[in-house]
Design a protein around this nucleic acid. Sequence first.
DNA 1: TCAAAATACGAGTAGATGCTCGCATTGTCT
DNA 2: AGACAATGCGAGCATCTACTCGTATTTTGA
Lengths: 202, 202
Amino acid sequence: MGSETPRRQARGQQRIQQILHAAAAIFAERGYDAATTNAIAAQAGISPGSLYQFFGNKDEIARALATHYAEQLRGLAAETFAPSPAATADLDELVDGLLTQLIAFNIEHPGFKALFARTDMPAGLRAAVQPVHASIHERVAALVAGLLADRPPEDTGRIATVTIQLVRAMMPLICEATNGTREALGRELHQVVVSYLRAQGA
Amino acid sequence: MGSETPRRQARGQQRIQQILHAAAAIFAERGYDAATTNAIAAQAGISPGSLYQFFGNKDEIARALATHYAEQLRGLAAETFAPSPAATADLDELVDGLLTQLIAFNIEHPGFKALFARTDMPAGLRAAVQPVHASIHERVAALVAGLLADRPPEDTGRIATVTIQLVRAMMPLICEATNGTREALGRELHQVVVSYLRAQGA
DNA sequence: TCAAAATACGAGTAGATGCTCGCATTGTCT
DNA sequence: AGACAATGCGAGCATCTACTCGTATTTTGA
């Protein structure tokens, strides 16, 4: 049936990391569509043939990179997403902590936006990042449900969707900005999210 | 210097409209990148050669379509953007009127999103829609300046940018939704914008 | 009426790109 | 050591797509 993935040697594991790192750089620089597999291979310092030793096609690279980001985000999230009563009590601080971490993450990993921040995605990319999207939504929905205990899951789910969308929309603007503009836009986003959630009853 | 555009006959004017209409359909269906000029020509019922009789390249089609949309939007805007004191007095009604019109426009013209709602654009598309973007921003900034008379232009400009981004981000979600979900998301967007502007002092 | 311009065609071209294939090299395991 | 697997290469294939070009038809304008 399916082609089996070979037993990876240490060298192979390193190559995979190199490729993902290179892919992140190319995706960030050109966007997913315009990124060519040959360019990714060149950036990684290997031949196209070697690249396809480890990834069957372009979408698979995107999927692996998305999963990679998801794991890093999970680690970051564990600190901040924990719905400790003390934190959720102060909405301002909760949102501030989350956004600060998310903005730092997005600046540190410019490839993340290229995969996740697009409003319209080609089918392959959409499928690649869908699981990660779902996991993010689940996490945010849980947080919103904690903030708005009296609302049905249908409402909190929709509010989570909207909130994620707001953050996604602002992230490219924030990352591209420099100097004080970035901080100013970060404050705007904070105000957007907080005032929206407060209007919902948080 | 530049190649002169031929004097258009009535037939040619019609063809141009046909092509723009076809391009809107193809852009809406596949997105800008995946839309091929041959597909646009086929949708318009003409040959590729005929298409290039009227447009020098793909970006030119996008630019013409963007301009076309901008004009329609200007007409729509004249009714709603007029900063009559009565309208601006009630923020809720002002935002409601604007969003209702914008949502209807986006649903009626699915090609609009494909050109304007993307967070990352290929260089050619970005250049094609930049003037239209600028004109929209100018208009919204004027409105925001009216609402927040005591803030410097630097602030109101940034607030306009953020507001536009929020609306852009939600529009695809709203358009793809059906039944009650669309109306629910529309109300969420309304609340997002209103509570954000109120938090700014409107 | 008639020449010039505009419109129309569609097979074809040049370039780009995802991906392959045959073969060489390096590592692993016994 | 020796066999087998993993890694590595890079020219090149198959395909796609923006765009062209030679030619035929229709419209314009005097």
